[in-house]
Design a protein around this nucleic acid. Structure first.
Length: 914
RNA sequence: GGGCCUAUAGCUCAGUAGGUUAGAGCGCACCCCUGAUAAGGGUGAGGUGGUUGGUUCGAUUCCAACUAGGCCCA
């Protein structure tokens, strides 16, 4: 029985467990961060040292529901950036925010109120909404913290706080003072039965039977048409005859070809493609009398079928040939597309329908009638006039009120707007867009074309849960009261009491002795509409960045999903230009959306939702964080069970590499052994520098998946499979204090120290845990330590080239060894001796490494033999190693058995002896 | 229906300013080790570069259409 020499070896020792057990450990690390205020300390230190700032301004999630994986992705991306910049000495205060007002919360509260919602006092209802938002802020705050996201969680910005609401009112009134705000009409969903406006979310689509009619409009201007001697009609199709009294125009597609056809009523004009359809309904001769392009019809006047009014032909791209006649009846007050045509062509936004769905008195024949029941009479009137070409029924999907389930209508109502054209707001917004860096770069085009085309910003909502439009109007002439002193009073009231105050104040308390500057009236009314919530979040730059002098304006970065090109990025831009003339951000970074393994969106109905809470419970928050870093966020981001299990394996590899490094530092003395490095140590140092450079560049460019891949590959390829494997012999068998072993430890320390920091912004929990196991650290948290810097003196490209050659030869040796292993000729590679047949060039190169080659190949002996007639530069032959196996280092040597300690090789013998 | 975006091995990512056999790591298969051990090492097999056209002497790389998917609108 050979003697056991295991105790004489320097085997790795560490308490840094192989099993991560993150679900248990992470909460403890969180507590450590919180108790010691690590993040606060880091920011204060950076602020003191004054190196620089990097302000990432948080976009507020909506305070409703638990966080989902998209929230996690967004906040972790932000956190990675904040941590990286903080570790580089930049002051990076992260002030999280929440969006609190708005319909979804109000609807939740309505639901819980049941019938009471009809009678409840507005202030009471607003209090319930406030409580609701508060509850979810607290829930989400804990969930974000659990992900390891650093920030000022105790002092977030909340859009329903008094201070924030005062900012909203101040910014809004600035727009008013500068003349951007006007009142105008716009069609909104309207329920005539509930007598209220409805939001998109309150609309349900259901099947409904409607009339389907073709109506003729007689053309007045015939100069553009080749027929002068007979009546000519434009034919429209509609399923809402009640909108005909509001008809102001007829739309044709500019590119389509229209034809004139003979019918029993005279000549009718429809789009060419519709002839086939219509010949079943209207008696016509199919051969056209003339053809005319839509564009040429523009401007022609036609007679309204039963009202003494002219309807003008306009062109519009949305006109289709599918159903109908290719000519669309336009009532700008009763449809979205109609409205836009109306705006563009300057028509009145005309809707002669009252809030209960009855025609107003200005409508001849039908004044006071319910619009739906009037349909029938309108049709008979058309028939009487000889202008009804066809009548039928259609069952189609039609919007209904979700409360009373009755059909709803589009009805133009008075709303508040910010004008995009006032003071060239749109043009200035577009100019600012070009001064911002958009990542990815196509973000610029996306938001640019949106801003270029967007209509005026409709600011008003007929709701309760929001910041009121704090304006007074003259009861007599509708004049909007703009008064600096009054505005200041309102702002300071809101600052003190919150925007609830608007619903409490008495008009005459604020407007004492005030008379309308326009008509002199002394009677005013309070506007009761509230502001669009996008205005709330749009002014966050003013509420957050201006609030604290330590911050700076504009923000260095906004970072949200790409849906925010239409949302927050745009509302923030417009809000900011209105008051500050500039974009509120320098860089805007967008990420994609989380999808499943097949690239489909996550949804309850597909059953492919994975929640962050679930991953945290099973794998730990660091796995969520690793996932965020591993994926290229610019595209859609996939998440599946398979991806998670791959990531868990990758995590284990990184963790184990770290563990091995730490394990071999258990007896390191902290000394500087840089002068004792072997060439392979210099190679390792060189590779480390390149890794640091690569990783830093990736962080700077916000390409975190490069960080992950670089670090992971370094761990797997450079470390585990090469350097660390080769180092084992030196670390284990050399004398503890030998310079060679100490040199290796010095390198391992450098690598461990750097790796932990390089990964800290990503796998923060693991990095912090590892930091505690790394000896000779003075900072109590890895985040208080400085990010690794490149040590240029260790960069040596020539050395790397030489080692690439050595590695190439090593690969060939491995192939030869593998063949012998499969043949069962050897097992462990130390059982082998390698004969390298080499040409002169290779021999000269390898002679310098002859002593090192066995170590490099992890074999017992290597012999070089020069041979001229080789096909390649070298050839590998594997033989059995000479001598016996040393029981201590497991290398084979002819000297084993010839020393006093009969089981040892000379090298081990010397170690044992001293 | 419109605007923008994406499509490279089972997975996550590289790459080619158009030019010989498209790379990495993981996973997988097989083998070794048992002094990183619910670890470690080695070798190997995997890709019609979404599809179809076009430009070109030559396209994964440029263009177009289509398909699938995503975001935003309608």
């Amino acid at each position: 029985m050979p003697k056991d020499y295991k105790d004489t070896l320097n085997l790795p020792q560490t308490d840094f467990a192989m099993k991560a057990n993150l679900a248990e450990k992470e909460p403890q690390l969180l507590k450590f961060w919180q108790d010691n205020k690590i993040y606060e300390e880091l920011q204060e230190k950076n602020l003191r040292e004054g190196k620089g700032k990097f302000i990432l301004h948080d976009g507020p999630p909506y305070a409703n529901g638990h966080i989902h994986i998209g929230h996690a992705l967004n906040k972790i991306l932000k956190d990675i950036i904040v941590k990286y910049h903080s570790m580089n000495g930049n002051y990076s205060p992260f002030i999280p925010g929440w969006d609190c007002h708005g319909l979804p919360i109000e609807l939740q509260v309505d639901k819980s109120l049941g019938k009471e919602k009809e009678s409840i006092d507005i202030l009471r209802k607003r209090q319930l909404c406030r409580d609701y938002a508060e509850k979810f802020i607290n829930i989400q705050r804990e969930e974000f913290i659990r992900l390891g996201v650093f920030g000022y969680w105790d002092t977030p910005y909340i859009t329903m706080s008094n201070e924030y609401e005062a900012t909203i009112v101040r910014e809004f009134l600035t727009f008013v003072k500068k003349g951007y705000v006007y009142r105008g009409k716009k069609p909104v969903y309207w329920c005539p039965s509930c007598v209220t406006a409805l939001a998109d979310a309150e609309v349900e689509y259901a099947e409904k039977e409607s009339p389907s009619i073709f109506v003729a409009f007689e053309i007045i201007d015939k100069d553009k048409i080749p027929i002068k001697d007979a009546p000519v009609y434009m034919v429209i199709w509609t399923t809402t005859p009640w909108t005909l009294p509001a008809n102001l125009a007829l739309a044709v597609h500019p590119e389509f070809t229209y034809v004139g056809l003979k019918s029993s009523k005279g000549i009718i004009i429809i789009v060419k493609e519709a002839v086939k359809n219509i010949k079943d309904k209207i008696e016509i001769e199919e051969t056209p009398i003339f053809e005319i392009k839509g564009a040429h019809l523009e401007g022609i006047r036609a007679q309204h079928p039963f009202i003494d009014r002219v309807s003008r032909v306009v062109t519009a791209d949305f006109v289709e040939t599918g159903e109908g006649s290719g000519i669309v009846h336009i009532a700008p007050g009763h449809g979205m597309e109609d409205y836009e045509v109306g705006l563009k062509k300057g028509f009145e936004i005309y809707a002669p329908v009252d809030e209960k769905g009855r025609f107003t008195k200005e409508v001849p024949y039908f004044a006071g009638q319910n619009i739906f029941s009037a349909n029938k009479e309108i049709i008979s009137l058309l028939n009487e006039k000889g202008l009804l070409l066809w009548e039928g029924k259609i069952t189609h999907s039609y919007p209904h009120c979700w409360r009373c389930k009755k059909p709803i209508i589009f009805r133009a109502t008075t709303q508040w707007f910010i004008s995009m054209s006032h003071d060239n707001l749109r043009g200035r917004a577009l100019e600012e867009i070009d001064k911002v860096r958009w990542i990815p770069s196509w973000g610029r085009d996306r938001i640019y074309s949106m801003v270029e085309r967007r209509p005026d910003w409709c600011l008003s909502r007929q709701r309760s849960w929001g910041v009121p439009i704090t304006l007074f109007l003259c009861q007599n002439c509708e004049h909007i009261i703009v008064d600096e002193e009054l505005f200041e009073k309102i702002i300071s009231l809101v600052e003190k009491e919150g925007s609830d105050v608007w619903f409490k104040i008495n008009i005459h308390d604020l407007l004492t002795d005030f008379s309308c500057p326009k008509c002199g009236s002394k009677e005013f009314r309070k506007e009761m509409d509230i502001l669009d919530v996008w205005f709330d979040s749009g002014v966050s730059h003013a509420a957050v960045l201006d609030r604290d002098p330590k911050m700076s304006w504009p923000a260095d970065m906004y970072l949200e999903g790409s849906d925010q090109h239409r949302g927050w990025f745009q509302s923030s831009l417009i809000a900011s230009i209105g008051s500050k003339e500039k974009a509120p951000y320098r860089i805007v970074l967008t990420h994609g959306f989380t999808v499943d393994g097949q690239g489909r969106k996550m949804s309850k109905s597909l059953g492919n939702v994975i929640s962050p809470q679930e991953i945290i419970k099973i794998n730990g928050a660091d796995i969520v964080r690793l996932w965020v870093s591993a994926e290229d966020y610019r595209d859609d981001i996939k998440l599946s069970k398979e991806i998670l299990s791959r990531l868990t394996e990758a995590y284990r590899k990184i963790r184990n590499t770290l563990r091995y490094l730490l394990g071999n530092l258990y007896d390191y003395d902290g000394g500087d052994y840089s002068s004792q490095l072997l060439e392979i140590d210099k190679w390792a140092m060189h590779r480390l520098q390149k890794l640091i450079r690569r990783v830093k560049r990736a962080y700077e460019e916000f390409e975190f998946h490069q960080v992950f891949h670089a670090v992971y590959n370094f761990c797997v390829t450079d470390m585990s499979a090469f350097y660390l494997d080769i180092l084992k012999d030196r670390l284990y068998t050399f004398k503890r204090e030998s310079p060679e072993r100490r040199a290796a430890q010095w390198v391992l320390y450098k690598i461990a120290n750097s790796l932990i920091k390089l990964m800290a912004p990503i796998i923060s929990f693991t990095a912090e845990e590892a930091w505690r196991h790394l000896p000779f650290t003075k900072e109590k948290s890895v985040f208080l330590s400085a990010f690794p810097q490149i040590e240029e003196k260790y960069i040596d490209e020539e050395l790397e080239n030489r080692w690439n050659k050595l590695i190439e030869i090593r690969d060939e040796v491995n192939k030869a060894l593998e063949i012998k292993r499969q043949e069962k000729f050897i097992g462990n590679s130390l059982e082998a001796k390698i004969i390298l047949y080499v040409n002169k060039t290779v021999k000269e190169f390898l002679m310098g490494y002859s002593d090192f080659l066995p170590t490099l190949f992890i074999v017992s002996q290597v012999e070089l033999k020069e041979e001229e007639k080789l096909e390649a530069d070298f050839k590998v032959s594997v033989q059995k190693a000479e001598g016996e196996k040393c029981q201590r280092c497991w290398n084979y040597s002819p000297m084993v058995g010839k020393l006093p300690e009969r089981d040892l090789c000379p090298r081990c013998y010397h170690v044992i002896e001293s």
